[in-house]
Design a protein around this nucleic acid. Structure first.
Lengths: 306, 306
DNA sequence: CGCTTTTAATACCCACTGGGTATAATTACG
DNA sequence: CGTAATTATACCCAGTGGGTATTAAAAGCG
């Protein structure tokens, strides 16, 4: 049995006339009659009651007609879905992101992407201990938003991953608003050499951690670690509680953190790059669609704010 | 596009290996590769990512796979349904019946039929003024259970209808239990010549009406009509109220009608035939299935009770 | 590092069959 | 009763689905 048989059957079932059906199918009547008979034989049931003069559907034929209409609808749907999937319009995108992206970059991007691709399920995986570039290579995530050190300090990323810089933003010092430097404008890191520091664990964020250590070392000291914390909200919370000072991305200033002051750092290297990472091989249409959206958002919205 | 392409695609999508898929399809690998490429070209999308060594589904391919599995399930369902329909196992049967059949024959038949063909929707249309053999010829009903006169008095039925005698049962006289003949055993109709009668309208049930008139005339009188009524339950109700006497099918004795006595009639012609009527042309599988069931019920259940 | 193995793609060929044309058979209708 | 309409039959041809032989390229292995 082939689709041909079923298409022919539906045409005859609608026309109830072999001649007209054949015409509609752009073919001659005898081969159409033969194909229908072949179909009836294969199914082992009569589909039409024929006289020399009239054609009528049998009960079986009538049943088959409605069922086949459903089948063809399902086939159309299958093809349409596949084509939409190939354009990245349907599917799933598992996006991992560092917590410091959650307040600025991520809302903009996810809003734009959901608007452009409403039928893609966007899974947001906030960074916890299990988010690493390895997740991308293992196939657990499709795209990661990650903070890395600046070039030329940026280490070689795992081969098999491609990158795109989403945002380069200044780093700022976060301190309790009761701190002696709060509200005094740009600070030299050297002024904070004696302060207790809140740092991100090196094993989780090697790039960002290394960059902060480097900035301090350039300023002539090694930070005394009062506390380590994963999430940016935890870090700022600890700062507000006066546990210590921390270096955080500048985009956090756009939010209001009660009890916390953020001041620029007087250093040309106090910049942080947020980069998108994805597997280079695979060429997933959804990933491509996301990257296109990302590029648009990066060049318009985020640029305008800078 | 043909089913072939889709079957081949599913095989390759499952095996992810052209060679093995071809083996499973009992064909060689090169033509399989070609058919898949033809399919990809027709859909305008890539379904597989091929290296010289490995085959993987693209997002579009993966989407198509699950959608096509649904499509094939729908196709199987379509074929199965058509085959069941051809055996009369699914469909609809519109059954018209006279009210006097509702108490004995109909329950037995409908129970047996529902048990044997649970997926046929059995529509029961109790006889009202709109039930006539014409309903069958017009296609409003599929089968009718009708009361006709005995042969040789039975008139020629409409051509185009076939018949089967379902039940031949004695006719009895129904009278109020206060009637002078109640409980006295078999009666001669002549004893009721002076009584008021309750009759069924001739225009609705010509056969049954004619038979009753004939029985009376044979007994030497013409019944004085006190009241006409359509439904057997109305007739028996009028009898119970003492409005008059009536001739009814004997199967009604099996029910308990308070205030009503039923006595046999001393006449070899006091018999009534309940016949099934259906269109002879059409050859509907559901009708055939019903008739088979009917034959079984007639020869077993109803026969045993007689 | 090169040889072997594996596997998809290419080249080419043939038989089968889907579809065309001509015609017969049958029936409804004027 | 003859004519028009419509399906079935008979026969033929071209297109193509599928086969075989081979190539190309990548992976595994000694």
């Amino acid at each position: 049995m082939e689709l041909r048989h079923l298409r022919y059957f539906l045409a005859v079932a609608e026309e109830l006339h072999f001649g007209r059906a054949a015409e509609r199918l752009n073919m001659a009547q005898p081969p159409l009659s033969k194909q229908i008979r072949d179909l009836e034989q294969e199914l082992g049931i009569g589909l039409f009651r024929r006289t020399k003069r009239h054609v009528a559907l049998t009960a079986a034929g009538s049943t088959l007609q409605v069922e086949l209409q459903r089948m063809f609808a399902q086939l159309d749907h299958a093809v349409l879905s596949a084509q939409r999937a190939s354009r990245g319009e349907i599917g799933r995108l598992r996006l991992g992101f560092v917590s410091s992206a959650a307040y600025h970059v991520l809302p903009a991007i996810s809003r734009a992407f959901r608007a452009a691709y409403p039928d893609v399920v966007l899974e947001l995986h906030e960074q916890t201990a299990d988010f690493r570039p390895e997740s991308l290579l293992e196939g657990t995530l499709d795209i990661g938003l990650y903070r890395v050190d600046l070039p030329p300090y940026r280490p070689a990323l795992d081969s098999g991953l491609r990158t795109m810089t989403v945002l380069r933003e200044p780093l700022v010092v976060a301190m309790a608003d009761s701190h002696r430097l709060a509200g005094r404008g740009p600070v030299d890191l050297a002024q904070l050499a004696a302060d207790p520091w809140i740092l991100i664990p090196a094993q989780i964020y090697p790039g960002f951690h290394a960059q902060i250590l480097r900035l301090c070392r350039t300023a002539g000291f090694t930070p005394r670690v009062a506390q380590e914390a994963f999430l940016i909200q935890t870090i700022v919370g600890l700062v507000a509680a006066g546990i210590g000072v921390a270096i955080v991305p500048g985009s956090l200033r756009q939010l209001c953190w009660p009890g916390v002051a953020m001041e620029p750092i007087r250093s040309p290297e106090a910049l942080s790059d947020l980069v998108a990472l994805w597997r280079q091989d695979e060429d997933s249409p959804v990933v491509s669609a996301f990257l296109r959206t990302l590029e648009r958002v990066v060049s318009c919205d985020l640029a305008n704010e800078a």
